[in-house]
Design a protein around this nucleic acid. Structure first.
Lengths: 246, 246
DNA sequence: CGGTAGATTGACTGACATCAACTGCGGTGG
DNA sequence: CCACCGCAGTTGATGTCAGTCAATCTACCG
């Protein structure tokens, strides 16, 4: 699976298998789905706050995000959506979106018609896997609350990088020490609730502490133990390695 | 329904009906459940981070919370659990809790055996209602991210009060202008990611601006329009009044 | 080769944390 | 009944982290 050309099915399988066992049957069902991902440039919206929920999106390639804009025009990024992440299986239960979803880099995004989604519900294993993934996304949001509420700016950024590294690794998009990070400092700042200037300085601090190196959209973690310790990062909230059936 | 003596079933029905229609059949199924809520004093833990998920809790009376403690011993409150709120229907899919749940005031809490929960899954309407409630709790966490990431301390507190008022009102625990708020300033500060001292000053500021009055665990909102405008509070993320079936 | 978006740096300011002291109140025990 | 204690709330003084304003630098692109 070369990362540039992962298909919709491949990326989804590797994501779901990260925390949930799938039967061969489940996998073939996923891989059989025939959708052509659409390409988006950076900065496009998939859904806007206030819209009726459109269906299930799956990020196949690139970085997207959930975000809200305040009256002041300030954008708060609520979650990063990475390849393999999907948007709200249950979202159709709600009559209007309370946040927007948009791309941050060039992306390939598959949109599943609700009939396709419905067909999958025959596969109990898949249903469980999707439900678990949703649960984990919520846990992720909770950890972000801890991050925003309790850590200093530099530690927040360090924590974010640890998280991104772990999440990208399970879908095969990070090696031991580095990964592509196609985000601007604005995109990072808007997620961490801080100013661009201060984000820049925090990055500089992490760099000069020898923890990381960020250039040309590639993040290298020079000192993983150091970074993890500094960020007080514990990956338990991501619930990987929990392949136990319930 | 006098609030001091609400039963498990009553409080749950009023909570679920706030955003989802229930059939008479659904309601009688809920009201028929026979569980005696347990009493807890303030400051007790229902579940600890690391534990195996225990089952479904329903808060019948009092305030509880989800929280995490950092290595430094700092507590970050991630969510307030109010009467009618329940904990994680799907949580059994995970093998260990990534956060703790504890009481903040005296509480009555019902714990549903998993068999009981399972029996309810015959009622499609209830399943949908629970799922929707879970979805909304996630939306709530996202709004908290916006709150922590983007608003000033005073505005954060104002926003919180607007939210609590709205959430308590749908379960009949708030009148037009006031409600019981059995929380210490520490409990508030730990949720809003600020120091106790600054929480105190923020409260003072809201009080002297004529927005609120907080004494003896009773919060009165003296100027609802003013407070809402100041906090830039939009209740859409709570998804009340969306009684449309999907 | 100019235009533009992103990154970087400096100077200043303001918001919020920390430290520390004091108040008010309810409970408890002598 | 009063003395004492402890917890929640309140206030002042001081320091620091992070936001804002503004300028410059760089890389990329037409």
């Amino acid at each position: 699976m070369s990362k540039g050309t992962a298909t919709f099915g491949e990326i989804l399988v590797s994501k779901l298998e990260a925390f949930n066992p799938l039967t061969e049957d489940d996998k073939t069902a996923l891989l059989a789905i025939d959708v052509e991902p659409r390409r988006f440039r950076a900065g496009n919206d998939l859904v806007l706050e206030g819209d009726a929920p459109g269906g299930v999106f799956v990020i196949v390639e690139g970085f997207a995000c959930r975000y809200k804009v305040s009256v002041r025009g300030v954008r708060q990024i609520i979650a990063y959506l990475l390849p393999g992440d999907f948007c709200d299986l249950d979202i159709l239960l709600l009559s209007s979106m309370d946040h927007s979803i948009g791309t941050l880099s060039e992306c390939r995004v598959a949109q599943l018609p609700s009939k396709t989604v419905h067909d999958l519900s025959n596969h109990a294993g898949l249903v469980r896997a999707f439900r678990k993934a949703t649960l984990i996304e919520t846990a992720n949001a909770r950890e972000w609350l801890v991050n925003l509420g309790g850590r200093s700016a530099v530690a927040r950024v360090a924590h974010l990088f640890c998280e991104l590294h772990a999440r990208l690794q399970v879908v095969g998009l990070a090696d031991n020490h580095s990964f592509d990070l196609p985000l601007t400092q604005v995109d990072l700042a808007d997620a961490m609730g801080m100013s661009i200037v201060h984000m820049n300085r925090s990055l500089k601090e992490l760099r000069s502490a020898g923890f990381i190196n960020l250039k040309r959209s590639r993040l290298t973690i020079c000192n993983p133990q150091g970074l993890t310790a500094f960020a007080r990062f514990k990956s338990n909230y991501l619930h990987f390695d929990e392949k136990v059936a319930a």
